[in-house]
Amino acid sequence: MATGGRRGAAAAPLLVAVAALLLGAAGHLYPGEVCPGMDIRNNLTRLHELENCSVIEGHLQILLMFKTRPEDFRDLSFPKLIMITDYLLLFRVYGLESLKDLFPNLTVIRGSRLFFNYALVIFEMVHLKELGLYNLMNITRGSVRIEKNNELCYLATIDWSRILDSVEDNYIVLNKDDNEECGDICPGTAKGKTNCPATVINGQFVERCWTHSHCQKVCPTICKSHGCTAEGLCCHSECLGNCSQPDDPTKCVACRNFYLDGRCVETCPPPYYHFQDWRCVNFSFCQDLHHKCKNSRRQGCHQYVIHNNKCIPECPSGYTMNSSNLLCTPCLGPCPKVCHLLEGEKTIDSVTSAQELRGCTVINGSLIINIRGGNNLAAELEANLGLIEEISGYLKIRRSYALVSLSFFRKLRLIRGETLEIGNYSFYALDNQNLRQLWDWSKHNLTITQGKLFFHYNPKLCLSEIHKMEEVSGTKGRQERNDIALKTNGDQASCENELLKFSYIRTSFDKI
């Protein structure tokens, strides 16, 4: 039985969820670079991206490699990797027998973001014989899940209580170790020597080791999670996991709180800001991140802002960003909400898709409305799209047979046209069989910064309504002859009103 693990408890099935942008060198404390989270699957090609990484700022997932063999891993080693800020997950990587050479110096898994409450997941690794993470000293947050690894031993010899604050939620089941077939031998045991430290858990006094050649490092209890030197002297209180010299914040392997210019500090002093819960960055760093993602459509890219001495992905609820200094300031009234469309555009074809934009005031991208039916549609669209004030790209209304009016965009005031449909149009209306009105132009103002209007096959939309939009939106004169079809717009509506004058002759039985 794995020490510190839980057996036999019912657990939810383990679901495996399925960018080499360097964020800056980590400095003297770390020998390499800070790398983003990685999802490495199918083959070993991307694994080489770990070569210079000291910190993975995010998670590391290595999974679904069915053609790899043990010899493929023999020359692979990433000794610079010290810390993973989120979680480490391995799933069905064939041929991998140990992690001792792959990650010989991995010391800390912070667990800032977890995989279903777990910071370390080893699942269905069919050839893994031992973990071998002999320098792993601290899992700051989260638990361990090690399950269905039929060859995995050296679990009962690990004292997880020396690595985690609590072992109650560890789930370590259905491994070879369960069948008591392992016969784990710690260093020196074969020669009758006791080389590794022994600890007591559940009444068992057991030597602690990761492999037959690597003991588990056990520091004096007084050192807590700070770690200790090879001689057993406690590291500085700002260290986490390990250090090369005692009581020196510049000799830590990793930091308990924050890293700044080669030393570990309790908090980031001005003019620095907390970033990702582990390091200090200056304003320029946060500003660069903001600008890199301002026009990016890459998933996970955030326009970072500053709030409460932190550089964070977005302002919290009730705050909006001051564009001059990136500071989050309290909103006066309802907060603006910028919604970034991942692929640059979004099609609204149902109430469900409209709900995804609920509360958005600025759309960074283009909207395509293609709704053919739905219950209580006008009210639903207004509830979900009615706060949109600005669209950076274009607005396209296409084959939306259920629409009679666009009044559900009740606050839309600006279409920038930074991206144009077919390279020309910022407003595009095609084949809307029941569209009769755009907006009530006596109450609604709309500016279209650039781009043209396109109207074709809107049989109940009168040309007068379209011409009014040209005047109000500032697009009059931009359109070419064929942009607004004269014969297919309003051709099934009563669009022309003329005053009919009647004269009559009164007659009676005795007068003409």
Rank of each mutant, 00 (worst) to 15 (best):
T140L: 05
C293A: 04
C328H: 01
I185M: 09
R256D: 05
I306N: 03
L47E: 00
Q61E: 08
G183M: 06
N149I: 01
Q303F: 12
I109C: 00
K251L: 08
L289D: 02
V55Q: 07
C311E: 03
S296G: 11
P36I: 06
F115N: 02
G241C: 05
L63F: 04
L164C: 07
F275M: 04
R113G: 12
N308M: 08
S317E: 11
G241F: 03
Q61T: 13
L63C: 10
N308R: 11
H214P: 06
L29R: 11
H48G: 01
G203M: 10
M65K: 02
Y272R: 02
I158Y: 07
H236K: 02
D178E: 13
T157S: 08
F258K: 02
D159C: 05
N257C: 01
N170E: 05
V93K: 00
S296N: 14
K224I: 07
L44Y: 08
K191D: 02
I122Q: 01
T189W: 07
V173H: 15
D72G: 06
G203N: 13
V265P: 01
G262S: 10
V144K: 01
L44E: 11
R279F: 13
Q204H: 11
C255V: 00
H48F: 07
T221A: 10
A119F: 01
V144P: 02
Q61M: 04
P313K: 07
V121R: 02
K148S: 15
F78K: 02
S324M: 11
P70Q: 11
E124T: 02
H127A: 12
G262L: 02
P336C: 02
H48R: 03
R69K: 02
C335W: 09
K191F: 14
E180T: 07
D159F: 00
N170P: 05
K67G: 03
D169G: 13
L164E: 04
N325R: 10
P334N: 09
C331E: 02
L332N: 14
C153S: 15
K129P: 01
Q276V: 10
R110D: 00
Q287P: 06
L289V: 10
E97W: 09
C280K: 01
T199V: 11
F275P: 01
C280L: 01
D75I: 11
I201S: 13
T107D: 02
E147T: 14
M65F: 10
V144I: 13
I201F: 13
E314N: 15
V305E: 02
V281L: 02
T157I: 09
R297G: 09
E57C: 03
L50P: 01
K67V: 13
T320N: 09
S54Q: 12
N135D: 06
C311L: 04
E124G: 03
T189E: 10
I185L: 07
D178K: 08
N242M: 09
Q299W: 03
D184I: 05
N179A: 10
Y87P: 03
C328R: 02
C286I: 13
G333I: 03
G232S: 13
H212C: 15
S77G: 08
P270T: 10
R256A: 10
N43Y: 06
F275S: 03
L332S: 01
C234W: 01
W210G: 06
D248H: 03
F115A: 13
V265C: 03
C293I: 07
Q299L: 06
R110A: 08
V265R: 07
F205P: 07
S284W: 11
D165Q: 06
N179M: 06
G183I: 06
N170V: 10
P79H: 06
L99P: 01
K217H: 07
S54L: 04
F115G: 00
N117A: 09
N179P: 07
Y154P: 14
L133P: 01
F285Y: 03
S244H: 10
L96R: 01
Y304N: 06
F91P: 00
K224Q: 07
Y259S: 04
D86R: 02
M38C: 02
C209K: 13
Q245T: 05
Q61V: 06
I82W: 13
C234R: 01
E71Q: 04
P313Q: 06
I222N: 08
M38D: 03
Y304W: 15
K129L: 04
L63I: 04
I56N: 00
M38Y: 08
R162W: 14
L99E: 00
V265K: 04
M137I: 05
W210L: 06
Y87F: 03
T320P: 02
N282I: 12
Y154I: 10
K67H: 01
H59V: 12
L152P: 00
C215W: 13
R256I: 09
G183F: 13
P36M: 09
G37Y: 07
P334H: 10
P31Q: 04
P220Y: 06
R256Y: 08
Q245P: 02
L81C: 01
T68I: 03
I56K: 00
D75Y: 14
R145K: 11
V121N: 01
V200N: 14
Y30I: 01
R110G: 09
D248Q: 08
C209Q: 02
C182I: 05
D178N: 14
E238R: 04
C255I: 01
M65A: 13
R145F: 06
V206C: 00
L89I: 10
L90A: 03
D277P: 02
H48T: 09
L81Q: 00
K191Y: 10
G111D: 00
I56C: 02
F205S: 14
P197E: 06
D169S: 05
I82A: 07
V121P: 00
P197S: 12
H214A: 14
H302I: 08
E238G: 06
L60A: 01
D165E: 14
E49S: 15
V218E: 10
P197H: 09
N42I: 05
I109Y: 00
T85C: 07
V253H: 08
S77W: 08
E314S: 06
D261K: 11
P316W: 02
V218I: 14
S237M: 05
F283H: 07
R162N: 15
P31K: 08
M38G: 04
G95S: 05
S98F: 02
C264H: 00
N43W: 07
T68Y: 15
I109K: 00
D248E: 04
E97M: 04
P336Y: 07
S112G: 06
L99K: 01
E151Y: 14
H291T: 01
A119P: 01
D75M: 11
E124Q: 08
D75H: 05
E147H: 07
G32E: 09
P70C: 05
H214T: 11
N325Q: 11
E57T: 04
V55D: 00
P246R: 06
H290L: 07
T211H: 09
M83A: 03
K191G: 13
I306E: 03
C264L: 00
L240T: 15
R297E: 08
K251W: 02
